[in-house]
């Protein structure tokens, strides 16, 4: 395996960047395999660590899945978001009215949250809810 991490480019627009320190463009690194329940356990220290993909937490193995967009949203909420999480996520997905593009394609054509992230992917989140 070449690498067990993914480098991603994240963009926020349409006012959504205000929830993320008013920074539109972010570069992040995610592990290839992530907890199936999208929890951050065992991943907060991952970028630099050499923890094997099927890490164990004490003697309890954590079930993993390939990192997908749903995991990415949880990661962004728990690590980059600075305020009002309810304006970003609702019921385990983006709040209705937020558009998601995966490599400049509507995520509805790419499997939405189930899309498996690849190294170098560019994910854009745009709020449609601000101002006319």
């Amino acid at each position: 395996m070449a690498s067990d991490t993914l480098s991603l480019k994240i963009e926020f627009g349409g006012g959504l960047e205000l929830l993320f320190s008013n920074i539109r463009s972010h570069k992040i690194t995610l592990p290839h395999l992530v907890p199936i329940d999208n929890s951050m356990d065992g991943t907060s220290h991952v970028p630099s660590s050499s923890t094997p993909p099927s890490a164990t937490d004490g003697d309890k193995p954590i079930k993993t899945k390939p990192a997908d967009v749903t995991y990415l949203m949880h990661y962004l909420r728990d690590n980059l978001l600075k305020e009002r999480a309810e304006l970003f996520m609702e019921n385990g997905t983006v709040r209705p009215g937020i558009l998601v593009l995966i490599n400049d394609t509507d995520w509805e054509l790419e499997g939405e949250g189930e899309y498996e992230l690849k190294d170098g992917d560019e994910i854009v989140f745009i709020s449609t809810l601000h101002g006319g």
Partner: peptide
């Protein structure tokens, strides 16, 4: 639809302002 208006602005790279009053 709002979705298409926002997508249009995105793909045309139009310059707009988006802060809540």
């Amino acid at each position: 639809y709002e979705k298409e208006i926002v997508m249009y602005a995105y793909f045309k790279k139009l310059d707009y302002f988006s802060t809540e009053c």
